[in-house]
Amino acid sequence: MSKWVWKGLRTGKKSSHYPDAPETAAGVSPGMPLTETGALPLEFCPFPVGEIEGSPDESKTDIRDCVHCFRCVRSSSDRVKWQEGYEWASEKDADAKGHSRQLGASFSHSLNIRMIDAGACGACISEVKQIAKPCYSIHRLGFFITPTPRHADVLLVVGPVTDNMVFPLKKAYEAMPTPKVVVAAGTCALTGGLFGPGFACGAGVSDFIPVDVEVPGCPPPPLAIIHALLVAVGRKPPFSGQKPSISERKAL
């Protein structure tokens, strides 16, 4: 067994330094398309799928809907800017009064997370898996994955919430002790994505349980999920939409 210890030591530290320093390695995030207004370039965006009734309503098609099809950026339009980065998590509209958005200081370095797969395609789950693996290692932040919602402070929901998962999702939410925070990760969990709302799917998590933090992306890269968790405990400010350093780089 000592060979494994030796192997582990020899490998050295592989973890990202985020959030102490921004992660600059290539390929940690696919980036995000964005126009100057912060909305998706609708004329190339296949989303919502199919015809849009009436005139396109640009305000409704925002970054939360992006499914990373790259059609906008790989077409020949100059209006599309490609935004690098991964700090995409935002707090859900704060109009629900009396509900603490953040867990508070006592949870900021000790957080237990339960992931619920409410019909995700596997990519989101794979990215969530990565946050507990050496390259991102959320344990260094004091975050832990727990197998039961009984011990969880954060419910990390991925997937559009299929009809068959509505009951388990609600049950898991009710089984959590208070205070609790729900993080919806991925386009499906935010809006239903490609699959919802439909006859077998809901239109995102917020239709079923109150959502506190949202992180878009299809799938959101591990660092975006970590950013969402940091937002949930108040260690990072949420994504504002105005501030992103829009890189001038036109994609590939």
Partner: peptide
Amino acid sequence: FYKYRGLEKL
């Protein structure tokens, strides 16, 4: 089929 999203129907 807990994750049945109705792909073929969609």
